[in-house]
Design a protein around this nucleic acid. Sequence first.
DNA 1: AGTACTACCTGGAGGC
DNA 2: TGCCTCCAGGTAGTAC
Length: 299
Amino acid sequence: MAVGQVPELPEVETVRRGLSERGIGQVFAEAIVGHPGILEDCSVQDVAGLAGERLERCDRHGKYLLLRMAGLSRRTLVVHLGMSGQLTFRRADEQVVPGTVRMPSGYVKSLGPPVVDAHVHLILRCVGGGEFLFRDPRRFGRILLLEGWDTACHARLERLGPDAISLTARQLAGLLAQAGRRDVKTVLLDQSVVAGIGNIYADEACFLARIRPDRSMGSLDSKARLSLARAALAVLDQGIRMAGTTFRDFVDVDGAHGGNAEKLQVYARGGLPCLRCGEVLSKAVVATRGTVWCERCQR
DNA sequence: AGTACTACCTGGAGGC
DNA sequence: TGCCTCCAGGTAGTAC
């Protein structure tokens, strides 16, 4: 079966944590754009102007990484990993060799060296050696450079709803209640309702909550909405603890794969038996996305 | 106004 | 073996 890999909230959070460990305090010596098409509302020259800037902190809103620059400019380099984006860091004195690393959760990840090829669209060289690499074969990723730390100044970020894991289950359930009569899955994927949920975690949340993804959100009572909200937060939390889901491309800043793929209950399992009841899992297009659910478990 | 659909893009998988 | 076609999906823009 053809499967994708999508940087959703847990994957982007995994990258953010790695960048915070490896990148904060680094001063950029040079910024090189490989493919200008990934830039949005900024030029190659604008990005080159990052030379001399120091990375002060790394935040995240939904699937967007927010690299905050120190100093007078206080600019923000915004990175969206799109479908296949990777943001890795290579230390100059570091020979990255394939191996394993044990996560705090106990999961052992495999390590691979960052690949440098024609799909690397941005290189941020650091003073003293080392470099950030943005690599994105499908080029759905985007890079923006904002003046200041206020991300609401750009339309793309201004229309985002609150970050999913900043919410309590009750708060999230409340947002779902206001989301109209669209399919449950359509609402979960709508970044203006809540930011961070993509196709994988939407399907997993529906399965955990025992709710069909093609039901109208308006048909859910308050108890079901709360159940769905709790399920969404639970699958996101598990994804973060497992350092993300890797099918093919997703890696953290050190080139390590995430461990969540083996935890998935429905995503990419269409036609296989339900892990809860044994029923053959259904697969169809819902909200214009490949969607898998159990006819028996999900109502 | 709210909702639905399509273009963008490339690598991998499967068919013949 | 190799070529061809199809499929994956996040977001903005367009159409209804």
